[in-house]
Design a protein around this nucleic acid. Structure first.
Lengths: 245, 245
DNA sequence: CGAACGTCAAGAGCAGTGCTCTCAATTGTT
DNA sequence: AACAATTGAGAGCACTGCTCTTGACGTTCG
């Protein structure tokens, strides 16, 4: 068979190819369940094989290795998160930049709380010995941050982001070069200091979510975690440049 | 844990007890090295036993289980980070609250960059199947945040924190109750909105560090990572209430 | 001084893991 | 129906955490 035919299952004509695709999908589904219940590092191909009702070696017909399955689950999770964020952002009207920003933040937190193990796979400590293949994970892995950047840039172009405060922290030259590269690469209009603040907003958003999901707050402190997160979101919105309102 | 082992060593009379304490310390040291090179989830008691020049079952004379060793390493890492932070903060004069805040942040980042695996153990995705015994990890695990809270509270009492802006985000009642409990529990003077902002500063600090250590920035974006982090620290200082300058 | 005791390392063994290999059976295609 | 591609089963290797038994050692006490 030609290599071209093996690509993104655009064909799927023969029953064999369809059965194969379904088996791979089953493996990913079972892997996702194991991931949710036992965590990434405890993901076991043998356990997946047992649940599939098949001997362990048979799984290797469909998935090259444990790392390969991890990559599939990584892409699967990134896309699931990206879909959730896109749906939440898309539910707000196009001009409601602040609403879109808040929707994005809340969607990330909700997905993370609902899927702690998968969130941990994406944003927790890297799995030892596993190196994600950039070519397959980069696109799905950047969906959320690109969405965030898009919202902020659109808001800036619409004049809804306050200009950077005059007493803002100075941006050193090396950092300015990095920020220029980002702006050029993404075709942004926002100035340096707002890009820098945007990066902080980005990392802070996931920092707040990670603390909650990874249990860094004690078990007792902060019962009103959603309120706390929404308060953080409001402050971060101000940091991103949104005017209070 | 090194200090504790040394202290225990000094307190123990019989040669047997001292040899035992030294062996436990050796196991922790080897475990720390394995942690640094292979990651937490790949920590193997058998590998530690090999490096110790001993058969695998022998280490169970000194460490009850893999989880027990994990706990020892957790406490060891928490204290190492706490020591680094205390040293950096203590190097600034007592009245230099802003300097102490920046020193804390830089110390956390430096330790994390130097010890990525141990940082991942403390602040990354939880090790599956392992539950840290709160009684043994709570005290060392709260050293950094208590140091941070102390700095901010001292600065507020000295009148060096700007009063919360009038247009700050509203604090809902349930969250206010949580914040009141925190203030009462720690004997703080700072008002609600500054505590809330302090929590955000806390999570954002570790969010920024985690993104860098866990490789969430791409391999190419941001070459001037120290500049980026210092910029973030400046912005976070403003968020905490420090006046610019 | 010798015996009892506490401690220790070693080894075998159980159940689990990732992964490779061979072999037979099934299946789709020709 | 015949052929070839594909698949599942099973054995096997090296590894893991952990338990149990055995034999050896050193200390301590009668």
């Amino acid at each position: 068979m030609t290599d071209a035919a093996t690509n993104a299952d655009a064909g799927l004509r023969t029953p064999r190819e369809r059965a194969r695709a379904r088996t791979v999908a089953d493996i990913v589904r079972l892997g996702r369940e194991h991931l949710a219940t036992h965590g990434a590092a405890a993901l076991s191909l043998r356990a997946v094989a047992r649940d599939l009702g098949v001997v362990s070696s048979a799984v290797y017909r469909y998935v090259a290795s444990r790392d390969e399955l991890l990559t599939l689950l990584l892409v699967d999770a990134y896309n699931d998160l990206g879909d959730a964020v896109d749906a939440a952002v898309g539910a707000k009207s196009e001009g409601d930049f602040s609403g879109r920003f808040h929707a994005l933040g809340l969607a990330v937190r909700e997905w993370a709380v609902r899927e702690p193990a998968r969130y941990g796979l994406l944003f927790g400590s890297p799995v030892p010995g596993y190196r994600a293949p950039a070519g397959r994970t980069e696109a799905p892995g950047t969906r959320v941050v690109y969405s965030l950047v898009g919202i902020l840039d659109d808001a800036y172009r619409a004049g809804e982001l306050a200009p950077p405060p005059a007493d803002a922290a100075v941006v050193p030259p090396a950092l300015a070069a990095d920020l220029d590269a980002v702006r050029a690469g993404l075709g942004l209009a926002v100035p340096d200091s707002l890009i820098a603040n945007g990066v902080l907003v980005w990392t802070s958003l996931f920092g707040a979510v990670s603390f909650e999901v990874f249990g860094q707050y004690g078990p007792d402190t902060f019962k009103a975690r959603e309120d706390l997160f929404e308060h953080h979101l409001h402050v971060l919105a101000g940091l991103a440049g949104f005017r209070r309102g």
